[in-house]
Design a protein around this nucleic acid. Structure first.
Length: 886
RNA sequence: AGGCACGUAGCUCAGGGGGAGAGCACUACCCUGACACGGUAGGGGUCCCGGGUUCAAAUCCCGGCGUGCCUACCA
């Protein structure tokens, strides 16, 4: 049945098991169910995406929760879907077309969008099938896409109603512009990175009637923007500029006269205290311009080139222009000095091009009122964030939120439902395309070319996927969702905005809990990236170790608030764990070949053995604790609990103990009863494993010869105290026995007595209950500790080795078993050897040349050797002591 | 610049006012009829440093040092 030669072979069963689950429709969530609801919406991966370890972590955690809650009797909806991922996808397809020498512009908008759809049809399913390999139990027939019919309707509905409520507006503001992607970006999409740049000090000579009588020095990192300067600003409190001779300066290279203005915004510390003001190309200067009513001179175009207003520099790329202007300033004596400076500069989060702050007409969402509601939902505890430290970050961002630029000058996305009348200039925002202008009746109207930020549709995900704006049974049953599981990297991009939209349009926060997990890194703690070549492919990991082992590793690592350092070594460890489970089950199955299962009435007649009561008690305890941990999203603690239970309680003790009864041919009734109970306990134990390791647990569960409570382990109840009652007596009995066996084994190991050698044991008892407990266990005690006779005594015999326990002291008579003289001689020899080793290592470490010249590893080896030798010495001396006492 | 986290065994990390823990790695012995992807036993730590609170601090507080991350409109 289970091939003993090869051990557990995950690849052989995973696909089959998954197909069976799908065929049986076991992931389906029924909104009409009377069970309590539990729901999660998947963070939709990009349609063009490949499954990476981040997805694997995220979805493993969600799957663990879903499977756990299903077993606890909830009607579970795990809503799957994919995201159209505006700029990212457009870039991918653009690059693909570029490979065929086709440019997006040559193709035209309509054809290009067709191409993207075709791309999506071809590759969009890839990540879904990859999620299936992970074991994700999503309700796949519900699969949604942010640009499908229903979700697009939700997007239009939200946009129009926000517009009607005055929460969406269009206007000229400074936005982040990516000259490569040729689109506006939101503040979040501009990633600040520290880079080395130049700080240029430029002389602006006094102008007007003070022409040629000195100058003011301004400092800038972007000298090319001076072409758009309209003023120089100083702080009134700045003593250096108390008595300026002039009210104007002349702009070098250009010759324009600029007013000197005064504003508190200008820092006294930075640069020279004088600030050049360029309202069309800097967000602060823009604000200054508004305050002081300054003109806006836009000198750069959308491709990052100097425009017509840039005079002789027109047509130059922004960085060429910078170099040219610096050169010209220098030649003409305007450049005072330049220094190197480290400063943070915005980069496009999709293509890493340096973002240009640009004056542009865009659509904005008024964020403050929406943010306020999202804020108070968490403050009031309507939604809880785990771990709580993220709350602060969440609050901080929402409190300082700025309006959200939602228009993008790309083609792939939801086209903004606004129409322009070229006749009268009227703008119409509507749910469906208006035939003619409502003002002047002109037709046809021209639709807005821009599309929405991809995060706009993601923000609606928790309710749009459930059919909103219709009132669907799904919304009624499953909204708000129980939990959102995601990485902290999209806390603002996505989580905060879902909160904003959810509270606004559903009047209820979209999640009861928000579980924020960390990032997956490589074994050295480096962020995985293609350029570093340290990317681990989840599919390769699954091929090598199995999905279960991979999942368990992720869960075991998912400690709150700490990044995950993934290593193959660790995954191999949990692969071994899967194998352990496999072999434990194999042991049970093998017993059926020689022992019949007990009929039901025999099970009621035959009282359970202490170890059977004990393991049941442990199952209950493990189930309880693991459940508690999962409810607090402490996946690592839950996983550790299950791991320890299976390996170190179920396998190490229960299986070893029960072998005694299973092999006792003199009592076939007990054999049968114990075998049947073994399967019951295996059944319950597999359930504890199932959320973490769904494949192996289902496979083995299906093979159980005993009757099962449900078609799949997926719907087998999570063990509780009713199924696995607490048994204090059994826990005490077995605990004492475990200690006793351990003590005997310790003596055996330390004294170098062969495991095959049968030992006698003398027990001195101070506690009557302990004696009774041990007496009752003597058969199993003999088997596990390989004992001959057990003797209960009242006084200390002359020749013995002792190990004290609670209530008893154990003596193992060693006369005749250990040749004291021979063993002593051996130990002395060994000690000499270790001392020599230690001296050698110590000497090497002491040699100055050694330390200075040797590579790090050599030193570590010597230190390791020294440490090792010292610890061995310590132990050898202890054993000598012991021998002397014999 | 501000904020948040972290510093515990060789490595990766739990824990958290009174006994210093796990997994892996390491050492020794064992191919014992579930499993060598295994078993049994064992070694190993100034819990970053300095102060304070306390009968008691790895744990709480303050201050350092170090590391990582996030936010930000300082030219």
């Amino acid at each position: 049945m289970l091939d003993p030669e090869k051990g557990y072979q995950p690849a052989a069963i995973e696909e089959e098991i998954y197909r069976w689950w799908e065929d049986k429709n076991l992931f389906h969530a029924n909104p009409a169910s009377s069970k309590p609801a539990y729901s999660i919406v998947i963070p939709p991966p990009n349609v063009t995406g490949q499954l990476h370890v981040g997805h694997a972590l995220d979805n493993t955690l969600q799957d663990i929760l879903c499977r756990f809650k299903r077993m606890q009797g909830y009607e579970v909806l795990w809503m799957p879907g994919t995201d159209h991922a505006g700029i990212a996808t457009q870039n991918v397809v653009e690059r693909f077309l570029a490979g065929q020498n086709i440019s997006r512009h040559a193709l035209g908008r309509e054809k290009f969008v067709e191409q993207v759809w075709a791309w999506k049809e071809e590759y969009g399913g890839k990540i879904i099938s990859q999620l299936k390999r992970l074991g994700a139990s999503c309700d796949w027939p519900r699969l949604r896409f942010t640009m499908d019919e229903g979700l697009s309707r939700a997007v239009r509905e939200v946009f129009v109603s926000l517009y009607e409520q005055g929460l969406i507006y269009r206007g000229d503001y400074i936005i982040n512009w990516c000259p490569r992607c040729q689109t506006a970006l939101s503040d979040l999409e501009s990633e600040h990175k520290e880079i080395e740049g130049g700080l240029y000090y430029i002389k602006y000579p006094y102008g007007g009637d003070k022409e040629g009588q000195g100058h003011i020095v301004v400092a800038t990192t972007r000298p090319e923007t001076m072409l758009g300067d309209v003023a120089v600003a100083i702080n009134q409190a700045d003593k250096r500029y108390c008595h300026l001779p002039a009210k104007q300066v002349r702009l070098p290279l250009v010759g324009r006269l600029l007013p000197i203005i005064y504003d508190d915004y200008v820092s006294l510390e930075f640069g020279t205290g004088a600030l050049k003001v360029t309202p069309a190309h800097d967000p602060n200067d823009f604000d200054l311009g508004v305050r002081h009513n300054l003109p806006r001179i836009k000198i750069m175009d959308e491709e990052g080139r100097i425009g017509a207003l840039g005079g002789i520099y027109a047509g130059l790329d922004r960085f060429e222009a910078r170099a040219r202007i610096v050169r010209d300033l220098e030649e003409q004596g305007f450049l005072l000095k330049q220094e190197k400076i480290k400063h943070s500069v915005g980069h496009c989060y999709r293509c890493s091009t340096i973002v240009e702050p640009l004056l542009s007409k865009q659509w904005f969402v008024r964020a403050k009122p929406l943010a306020q509601a999202a804020l108070s939902a968490v403050e009031k505890g309507e939604s809880k964030i785990y771990p709580p430290m993220w709350e602060k970050t969440y609050f901080e961002w929402l409190r300082n939120i700025r309006d959200w630029c939602v228009s993008r000058q790309i083609w792939w996305g939801h086209r903004i439902p606004a129409w322009y009348c070229d006749e009268c200039g009227e703008v119409t925002v509507a749910r469906s395309e208006p035939k003619k202008c409502p003002q002047c009746k002109h037709q046809p109207l021209r639709q807005e070319e821009d599309v929405l930020d991809t995060w706009f549709s993601s923000a609606l995900w928790p309710f749009s996927t459930m059919g909103w704006p219709d009132k669907t049974p799904e919304l009624k049953k499953f909204y708000p969702t129980s939990c959102l599981v995601t990485g902290f990297d999209i806390l603002f991009f996505w989580v905060a905005r879902m909160m904003m939209m959810g509270v606004r349009f559903m009047r209820e926060a979209p999640f009861k809990d928000i579980c924020i997990h960390a990032l997956v890194r490589d074994a050295q703690g480096q962020k995985m990236s293609k350029s570093k070549g340290n990317v681990m492919d989840p599919l390769e990991i699954i091929d090598d170790y199995g999905a279960d082992a991979f999942r368990f590793t992720l869960a075991a690592f998912a400690a709150q608030g700490r990044d995950i350092k993934l290593s193959n070594q660790r995954i191999a460890g949990y692969r071994n764990f899967a194998n352990k489970i496999w072999n434990a089950a194999r042991f049970a199955f093998m017993q059926t070949e020689k022992t019949p299962l007990a009929p039901p009435d025999l099970l009621t007649q035959q009282a359970p053995l202490p170890e059977e009561r004990w393991i049941l008690s442990r199952i209950g305890q493990t189930a309880e604790q693991a459940a508690g941990f999962l409810d607090e999203y402490r996946f690592n603690d839950a996983a550790a609990q299950v791991y320890h239970f299976i390996w170190h309680e179920f396998c190490d003790w229960y299986l070893e103990l029960i072998k005694v009864a299973l092999n006792d041919q003199s009592d076939s009734r007990q054999q049968s009863a114990s075998l049947s109970r073994l399967f019951i306990n295996l059944d319950l134990s597999l359930r504890l494993v199932h959320p973490f390791m769904p494949f192996i647990s289902e496979y083995l569960w299906q093979k159980l010869p005993s009757p099962r409570v449900s078609e799949s382990i997926m719907h087998a109840p999570w063990p509780n105290r009713a199924l696995a009652p607490y048994d204090q007596t059994a826990e005490q009995y077995i605990g004492l026995m475990m200690d006793t066996v351990g003590a005997v084994r310790n003596i055996r190991g330390e004294m170098g007595i062969s495991p095959a050698q049968e030992l006698d044991l003398q027990i001195m008892v101070y506690d009557r209950a302990a004696q009774d407990a041990l007496l009752a266990q003597s058969k199993r005690l003999k088997s596990l500790a390989r004992l001959g006779n057990i003797l209960y005594i009242n006084e200390v015999p002359g020749l013995a080795a002792a190990a004290p326990l609670a209530g008893v002291t154990l003596y193992v008579p060693l006369a005749g078993l250990v040749d004291v003289d021979k063993e002593t001689a051996r130990l002395h020899k060994e000690i000499d050897k270790q001392e020599k080793q230690a001296r050698q290592s110590a000497r090497k470490l002491d040699t100055p040349g050694f330390r200075n010249t040797a590579p790090q590893e050599v030193i570590e080896t010597e230190e390791e050797k020294l440490r090792q030798a010292q610890s061995v010495l310590k132990r050898l001396h202890a054993n000598l002591e012991r021998l002397r006492s014999l």
